[in-house]
Every structure is written in C-alpha cells, then in structure tokens.
C-alpha cells in the first residue's frame, strides 16, 4: 500500500470541509495519515478517523493559529523525514497553498496544483488538472517522491467510513525563525446567512447586472430561495462585491442543486467553479453567450426585470404551499 499523508487545514479551530472531501479519494490510494495543527487539532483528527485516516498526527499549539505557513511547513517537513510518504495531499485553498509550496521547495520536489482528480498508475501518481479554465484536462505524472498534489475543493464527495484514527503527537519543533508572518487580527466581512460553498441554491451576478446597486435584487431572490449570492471575477475585480463572493477558477468552487447565473457570459474562468452544479439556469441578454451552452435552461431577456418577477413568483408559490 502506498503511504499517503493529508494535510488537514484548520481555520479558527474548524476543519476545512475540503479535507473530508479529499479523504474520500486518499483512502482509495493508500494508508492515510492526517496532520492537524493548532486549536481543534485533536477533534479534527478524530473526525478524520471516521473518514478513513489510520493515523492522525496532531499538535494543539497556538503557534499554528498565529503564524502563517512556516510553522506548519516545519512539521510537514519533519514528518516526511520520519515517515517517507509516497503522496502528500493538500486542498487548493489559501493556507494550504502557502504550506505546500514551501514544503516542495524545502524537499526539492515538484508539485501538481489545482488538481480535480488523482489516480495511482504503475507505482506513480497521475493527477488530472483542468487547463484553460476547465476546457482541457491534462494528465500530469509526478516524477519525484513524495508526489505533492493540491486538490480543488468540491472535487470529491465526503463520506464517512466509520473507522477511528490512532492519534499521535506530530513530530518536529517550531523554532523562533519560523515565527515571522504574524496574524494580528481576523476580520469577518461577509455577513452570509448561508455559506456559498454549502448553499443548495446559488445565484450569481455578473456584468449584466449593470452595477453594484442592482445586486440587492439577487439578495432578495436568494433569501426567497434560501440560497446564497455569488459573483463573477469581472464584477469582483471591478469592486462591485467582495472577493468572498467570487465563484470560479480563482474563487470558490460550488456544486449546488441549482445554480442561477445572472448576466454572466460564462468565461471558462467562471464555469470551472460551477459547472458540476446539478441544474444550471442562465439569464442573459445574449443568446450566444457561452453560459447558454452549458445551461439546462437558458433565458434570453432582461435580468433586471426577470429577477424581481422571479422573486415574487417564488414567494407566492412558497406562500401557497
């Protein structure tokens, strides 16, 4: 069996949901150890045992909560020296990206970023990586050991297997030299009632919304449907809405039951983050927009008229039932 290590990213004591998704694939590829560092590490280790981790290396030390990348890199490096993993998996999320890059450089090995799938082939690992915003899928083989692969969130579905992990103290020590990028404060901006990544319905707006002043129309529809509002990169770059709402290659990946794209042309940058949604509805003035080619229902018309009418219709229907 291959030896696989999964870095279990914690944020303010909570396990990132991308990690349990990765476990669903990791346990098919070999014997899995997980590494959880900082506040909440023990609980995360226990959770990941239920998802198929045989060993959970934990260290509940505030240094991992308070400093970016370097303390965790020290532990991951020490663990690789100790256990010589064949494969180390990270989620393609900010904190994990920072650690994975440093670890690869320290080990002098390569890494494959932004993967959507991974398989074992003849003793090495091959990852599928979307290119050109997802139009092409490259199969990339890792030539070095360990293979380090970063997996896009929402690539796999998390499921429990009901086991339990042997919880151990993570090796290595963190020197003062690694306490450099110091987190002073965390500020929450998004007042999301429903988390974008977890929403059953996502309504996203693009340039076709005309301006930031029209985004409340989407908020109204989202609250009628119990969903969350997303956005295209174009409107985030233009400063209409915060980055936390961005769906796509460089934003969040979502997989809701219904995705409603309003005034979004459907550049590949965007579709790679939403095209695995179960049902896609597009509202756009342009019948030729690329989003129409992947939508289950494409409506050609004026979003600023259709959205409020739709909100009213949803409310009316809900009122009846």
């Amino acid at each position: 069996m291959a030896k696989v290590c999964v870095y279990a990213e914690l944020s303010e004591g909570k396990l990132n949901s991308a990690v349990t998704e990765i476990m669903a694939k990791a346990r098919e590829l070999g014997d899995v150890s997980v590494v959880a560092l900082g506040t909440g590490a023990k609980e995360a280790g226990a959770t990941l045992g239920k998802h198929g981790a045989k060993v959970a290396y934990v260290k509940e030390d505030k240094v991992f909560d308070d400093y970016l990348a370097e303390p965790a890199t020290d532990v991951m490096h020490a663990l690789q020296q100790q256990d010589a993993y064949d494969l180390i998996l990270f989620s393609f999320t900010s904190d994990s990206r920072d650690i994975a890059g440093r670890l690869a450089a320290r080990l002098g090995t390569g890494l494959i970023s932004n993967a959507s799938d991974i398989s074992a082939e003849g003793g090495s690992f091959v990852a599928k990586v979307p290119y050109f915003g997802g139009a092409k899928l490259a199969s990339m083989k890792a030539n070095g050991k360990p293979a380090i692969v970063l997996v896009r969130p929402k690539s796999f579905e998390a499921s429990e297997t009901g086991g339990s992990a042997d919880v151990k103290d993570a090796p290595g020590s963190v020197g003062d030299g690694s306490k450099r990028a110091h987190i002073l404060e965390r500020v929450t901006e998004a007042s999301e009632k429903v988390k974008l990544e977890d929403a059953r319905v996502v309504i996203s707006g693009g340039r076709g919304m005309g301006g930031p002043d029209n985004f409340p129309l989407l908020e109204d529809l989202a609250s009628a449907l119990g969903g969350a509002v997303g956005a295209s990169r174009a409107v985030v770059d233009a400063g209409w809405v915060p980055y936390s709402m961005q769906v796509g290659q460089t934003g969040k990946s979502v997989r809701p039951g219904v995705y409603i794209a309003v005034g979004i042309s459907g550049a590949m940058q965007h579709t790679v983050g939403m095209k695995t949604s179960k049902v896609i509805i597009a509202i756009n003035k342009d019948a030729e927009a690329p989003i129409m080619k992947i939508a289950d229902l494409g409506v050609v018309g004026d979003a600023l008229k259709i959205v409020p009418a739709l909100t009213a219709a949803v409310k009316a229907k809900k009122g009846k039932s």
């Binding site: 290119y131 939508a295 229902l297």
Partner: peptide, 20 residues
C-alpha cells in the same frame, strides 16, 4: 518534476433549452 502525459477535452455539459 512533472510530466504531462496527455491532454483531453474535458467533459462538457449538454445545452438544455434556450427560450426568449
């Protein structure tokens, strides 16, 4: 450190109905 073994077109969704 990595070799690209092959490149395939990603699975595409089929378009549904488009209405005015």
């Amino acid at each position: 450190a990595e070799t690209i073994e092959s490149v395939a077109s990603a699975e595409t969704r089929k378009a549904g109905s488009i209405i005015e």
